[in-house]
Amino acid sequence: MSMEDYDFLFKIVLIGNAGVGKTCLVRRFTQGLFPPGQGATIGVDFMIKTVEINGEKVKLQIWDTAGQERFRSITQSYYRSANALILTYDITCEESFRCLPEWLREIEQYASNKVITVLVGNKIDLAERREVSQQRAEEFSEAQDMYYLETSAKESDNVEKLFLDLACRLISEARQNTLVNNVASPLPGEGKSISYLTCCNFN
């Protein structure tokens, strides 16, 4: 892995009800496409995009999960290794918004406690059919301590921003972690093993 050409590798998992546009968001970001009449995702899809942020190569592994109930046990198995979750709903579909607490329970249950969660309201190109007001969503996300963004995969609004902002936050988080690890007293094993490795290097 270290042979590959990147500075950071992050796993991002998209979750949310069926038909809210997860696949379209991923396609728009990774391929610049908006495939109309996209069929329901089967299981999970997997895409990779490498972006450059402040001169650093960041490889994003994006897992696009199926929203349908019958794939839940498959998608849940991906939560734990995710660095970030993009919880998506459809602003023109009240139902998809009302299901969010249920999704949050799943995150609570399966994801790592260090995971970053972003709430995304998709399909703002269909503003005339909006059922969930921006204010309501913002209040909800604030209460749940989540970052919130409205996007349109069709018009490519905020899609780039969503993933790039997320990558930035993941980088700063990763930096902080290594910093904390360095400051904290080394684990019993670490200090010794290092000194002993350097000894070997002299030979």
Binding site: I42, G43, V44, F71, S73, I74, S77, Y78, R80, S81
Partner: peptide
């Protein structure tokens, strides 16, 4: 099923 396999690996 690859998805099933991957889920079990996870």
């Amino acid at each position: 099923s690859i998805d099933c396999l991957c889920a079990m690996i996870n």
